[in-house]
Write a protein that binds this DNA or RNA. Structure first.
Lengths: 72, 72
DNA sequence: GATCGATGTAAGATATTTTTTACATCAATG
DNA sequence: CATTGATGTAAAAAATATCTTACATCGATC
């Protein structure tokens, strides 16, 4: 069934702010595929904590600067 | 295959600090089973971002107050 | 206008998380 | 000492995340 998780994310925005890093390039860096980045940006599923940390740390920010909890 | 993720967590400690909340009770509250809480506490896998947020918010703290990235 | 890079969709396979069920131990307590 | 609540282990099944591959569109540029 897989619902849409109540989580927001700024991955796309952060990519743009970092020199227009492509989805494929970010995927390579954090160790997932381009498809995974697409799905995360589209909010199709909530990534693992590990992938989330890798993305945040690559941009040099905290987890909650990238991913937000709806209802906060 | 499933390696141990480079993530630390203070779930057990937070449970104790919150009146000795049991694993089963925490699981009920955040919507997962007792087995899932056990596995998370033991670091057997990295939970979904959604489960992580629910745990943190139940204790009234930020995600990174519960889960830490080794290598920070 | 052919090519190239970035993004998107989709489907089937694989990996990992989560559930379910069952049983074991230990501390506390009746 | 029987029971009860909390924790632990284990294994199979179910759910979900991730990968792989393939094809389509769009904007830029040669």
């Amino acid at each position: 069934m897989s619902k849409r998780p109540p989580i927001t994310n700024r991955v796309r925005q952060l990519r743009e702010e970092h020199g227009g890093l492509s989805q494929a390039a970010l995927g390579d860096i954090v160790g997932v595929t381009r498809q995974t980045i697409i799905a995360i940006e589209q909010g199709r599923y909530s990534p693992s904590l590990e992938t989330s940390f890798r993305i945040a740390r690559h941009f040099g920010v905290g987890l909650e600067d990238v991913f937000g909890w709806e209802g906060d």
